[in-house]
Amino acid sequence: MAQIILGGGCFWCTEAAYKQLNGVEKVVSGYAGGHTENPTYREVCNGDTGHAEVIKIEYDEEKISLEKILEFFFKIHDPTTKDREGPDVGSQYRSIILYNSEQQKKEIEAFIEKIRKDYQDEIVTELRPLEKFYRAEEKHQDYFEKNPDDAYCTMHAQPKVDKAREFN
């Protein structure tokens, strides 16, 4: 299994969407990209940890490529808005990709360069090596599945889930 760590706003939304994609085997919500060890949701939301809400995606490369995963990532969030996605504002909601190898980094850079012309504004997605991924608390795992009628999920996660179903 290959893996990639992505952050594009609230992890409830991105986790729910990526779980719909053929070839994605596992998605875990968590925190990465910051300086605090073992951060909690509350600490991350306060914005003092440097971490972003992210998802760890494990995928079968024979069924879905990294390019397809990235293509979907750039479809379901705005990579040109710094520290914001929809109603969520703060560095914890920033657009970020954390890579596992130099080869993966090169593939991501090439992909971003290829799509750059599709955006009027500059792509502000942060690209950096993964140092440590911290799994979010259990109540945040599968949040959309557990709370489909939650107003936030209905307004923000469901449209991304719908895009994922169309993307397949």
Rank of each mutant, 00 (worst) to 15 (best):
Glu109Asn: 12
Lys160Cys: 06
Ile97Gly: 03
Asp88Pro: 04
Leu130Trp: 12
Lys146Leu: 11
Asp83Arg: 05
Phe72Val: 12
Ile112Gly: 08
Gly50Leu: 04
Trp12Phe: 00
Ser29Gly: 08
Ile112Asn: 07
Val28Cys: 06
Pro39Trp: 05
Gly7Ile: 10
Cys13Asn: 03
Thr81Met: 00
Thr40Cys: 07
Arg42Ile: 13
Glu43Cys: 00
Ile108Arg: 05
Lys160Gly: 07
Ala110Tyr: 05
Met155Tyr: 00
Glu71His: 15
Arg94Glu: 02
Pro87Phe: 03
Val124Ala: 06
Phe133His: 10
Lys160Ser: 05
Ser101Ala: 04
Glu25Lys: 13
Val44Leu: 05
Pro148Met: 04
Ala16Gln: 02
Asp83Pro: 03
Ser95Leu: 01
Gln120Glu: 15
Arg135His: 10
Asp162Met: 05
Lys68Gln: 15
Glu37Trp: 01
Lys26Met: 08
Ile69Glu: 15
Phe74Val: 07
Phe11Glu: 01
Tyr93Ala: 03
Cys13Phe: 00
Gln103Lys: 12
Leu6Ala: 14
Val24His: 08
Tyr152Thr: 01
Lys117Cys: 04
Glu131Gln: 12
Pro39Lys: 04
Lys56Glu: 15
Pro39Asn: 06
Phe73Cys: 12
Lys19Asn: 14
Lys117Gly: 02
Met155Trp: 00
Ala16Asn: 01
Glu102Ala: 08
Pro129Glu: 07
Phe133Tyr: 11
Val54Gln: 12
His77Tyr: 06
Glu131Thr: 12
Gly33Ser: 09
Tyr41Glu: 06
Glu126Pro: 00
Glu67Ile: 14
Leu70Gln: 13
Tyr119Asn: 14
